[in-house]
Design a protein around this nucleic acid. Structure first.
Lengths: 175, 175
DNA sequence: GGAATATGTCAACATTGCTGACCTAAATGG
DNA sequence: CCATTTAGGTCAGCAATGTTGACATATTCC
């Protein structure tokens, strides 16, 4: 493997331009393949319902955050309302998601997973959980803690807080 | 946080159906956001060249494996030759990739990144490496080893060997 | 009551997957 | 040497999911 010396602990805040890191090709490619397989598995299940990834993302976050509004969802997914609406309309039509007018402000639409939707969301979460659980077991003790912190650190710094509090605010008990 | 007890080390090979794991929503969502930011950064750079993610994937693997053939590339990316050809044609036209007839079998086309292509591939790899390096530093010593093994374990088991030897066979010195 | 807000919708387009069909050039085997 | 296989290119059309821009509607707020 012959790692050059430059990969020592901390490249020391040397002259900015001089700091040239050895490319971490291994990690770059591993993340590509890991993510591919991670979502590919869900894709296969979704296909049997006539849904795609976009549907899953919507269903997932609505299930995790019952009562979510359109605006909040747009903020999470960072897509346009037109893109969202296309898939959301289908999810509502097929009775996986239900939209109710907001209690206080009737302009808002609050989204809820129906029982059917909850079931599908949970089925996919189970597949993905299984993959994580098996992987973590394989890596050994402490893997979960490290993997969690690692993934957090991979998120754009200015985004991190928002994402973390979003995750923390997911409903605690699902099923 | 109140993690239920079920998340102990190993769920013990109990009756198959009874084993219901607590969904690892935190990891599921972290991976989603981490990957989004990871590729988003590259997307922005690629956009200025009129390229998309598909172009990047091709350029990346050709740069890592000079002399790669079409068939080998199709096998790595798992897309159709029509999809590949669309982006490959553009990469060749814009002089980021060069195709030469195979030395022994002239039916094969061997692909090489041009100097321009190499530069772009490297620029993106640098961005992504920086992200990994910063994240790993943040997590602390041993993070790289654990992250590597974790990502490996997330890949479909039957695929793993193929992927690992592909990664290992990347050219050792890039730039 | 006018302005701002939350959402829906229509039309058009780009990227990147897909299938199916068909074409050429080169190698290979009998 | 000719038929077949192999490697690749290309055309046409379609699907999913992202984008902009423009405009409509209902509701709330000042």
């Amino acid at each position: 493997m012959a790692e050059p010396m430059r990969t020592r602990g901390r490249p020391a805040a040397s002259p900015v331009a001089a700091r040239e890191e050895t490319p971490l090709y291994e990690l770059i490619e591993l993340l590509f393949f890991a993510y591919r397989d991670f979502v590919g598995e869900a894709d296969r299940l979704l296909e049997s319902y006539g849904f795609g990834r976009a549907h899953h993302r919507v269903l997932h976050f609505v299930n995790r955050h019952p009562g979510l509004t359109i605006a909040a969802l747009l903020d999470i997914l960072r897509i346009t309302k037109q893109s969202l609406n296309r898939v959301l309309k289908e999810l509502v039509a097929k009775n996986f998601i239900e939209a109710r007018a907001g209690a206080t402000d009737r302009r808002h639409r609050q989204l809820y997973a129906t029982e059917t939707g909850e079931r599908l969301a949970h089925d996919i979460a189970r597949l993905q959980t299984r993959r994580f659980a098996t992987a973590l077991e394989e890596v050994g003790p402490g893997a979960r803690e490290t993997a969690t912190r690692f993934l957090q650190a991979m998120i754009d710094a200015p985004e991190r807080e928002r994402v973390m509090s979003l995750i923390a605010s997911g409903r605690e008990r699902t099923k």
